[in-house]
Amino acid sequence: MHTYVVLAYKESEYLEECIKSVLNQKYPSKVVVATSTPNEFIQNIVRKYSLEIIVNPNPGRGIGYDFDFAVSCGKTKLATVAHQDDIYDYEYSDLIVKAYKKNQDSLIVFSDYYEIREEGKVYSNTNLKIKRILLFPLRSRFLASTKFGKRLSLRFGNAISCPAVTFDKDNINTNDIFKCDFVCDVDWYAWEKLSKKSGKFTFIKKPLMGHRVHEDSTTTEIINGRIRTKEDLIMFQKFWPNFIAKFINKFYVKAEDSNN
């Protein structure tokens, strides 16, 4: 019922660790590797674990297009795009599938997460606490099924961690989830779009995967270039009048410092 699509890019030192984590699961998920940058490094790791590699036939169009391609590579009803720098706990797919079976009208099923930093696994900091507060409405099965509840969890920022999300491919258009010209907020853009559709955002409050924060990550690079600030404002304007969006965005910039 569930597939991990490991999205590989160039030569990440963490790719093999990610693959090991998705192969070592309580629930026997399928695993494939998708890439827009095929190279010998990726080929060698894929060959080592006898995995299928799927090469994007239309590379270079942008991050959002790469994500949509990765979702489409899922071999099953449920698909998780595993980011190459991240890791998944032993119970991730097992609990995701169980939660889905209880909520089969779900658009997405996702878990809480922890951060992986130089000092190790971090389960609580200011950034994570704020995101958990924002996600509180989705603990209600009723609110998680309503447009109001889904958008309430998104209107003050993007609290849903993209690599923690599993998609129900039957309930959404997998060719048009992330597709946009953004370079950072492609996931927030996707959740905002999906929040308008009929269906549930099913949230598991237990941290089931680790998102790596390091100086070479794409997120860090984008924040340092302040590209994210511009995209954040566009997203806030989808939920608020312009003057309120600008006010919120000034405070939101400070949260980015947590990623440094």
Rank of each mutant, 00 (worst) to 15 (best):
Y4L: 08
E11V: 02
E11M: 11
S12Q: 09
E16K: 13
E16V: 03
E16N: 05
E17R: 15
L23Y: 04
N24R: 12
Y27F: 15
S29R: 00
P38G: 12
I42S: 03
Q43D: 15
N44R: 15
N44M: 14
I45L: 09
I45S: 08
R47M: 12
R47P: 07
R47L: 14
L51T: 06
L51F: 10
I53M: 15
V55N: 11
P59H: 13
A70I: 12
V71L: 10
S72Q: 08
C73R: 09
K75G: 01
L78I: 01
I87L: 11
Y90M: 12
Y90P: 00
Y92M: 09
S93V: 06
D94Y: 14
L95I: 00
L95E: 10
V97W: 15
K98L: 13
Y100L: 06
K101C: 08
K101H: 13
K102V: 11
Q104W: 02
D105R: 02
V109A: 08
F110W: 04
E118I: 13
E119Q: 14
E119L: 12
E119S: 08
K121H: 06
Y123P: 07
S124A: 15
N125D: 10
L134T: 07
P137T: 05
S140T: 13
S140H: 11
S140M: 12
L143A: 03
L143W: 12
L143P: 05
S145H: 10
F148W: 12
K150F: 03
K150N: 04
R151N: 10
P163H: 05
P163I: 03
P163G: 05
A164Y: 04
A164V: 05
T166G: 02
I172E: 05
T174H: 01
T174K: 08
K179G: 03
V186P: 00
E192I: 02
K196H: 04
T202P: 00
F203Q: 10
K205Q: 13
K206W: 13
M209E: 01
V213Q: 15
I222R: 05
I223M: 13
E231A: 08
L233R: 04
I234N: 08
I234V: 13
Q237R: 15
K238W: 08
W240E: 07
V253F: 09
V253P: 02
E256C: 02
N259K: 11
N259R: 11
N259L: 13
N260W: 01
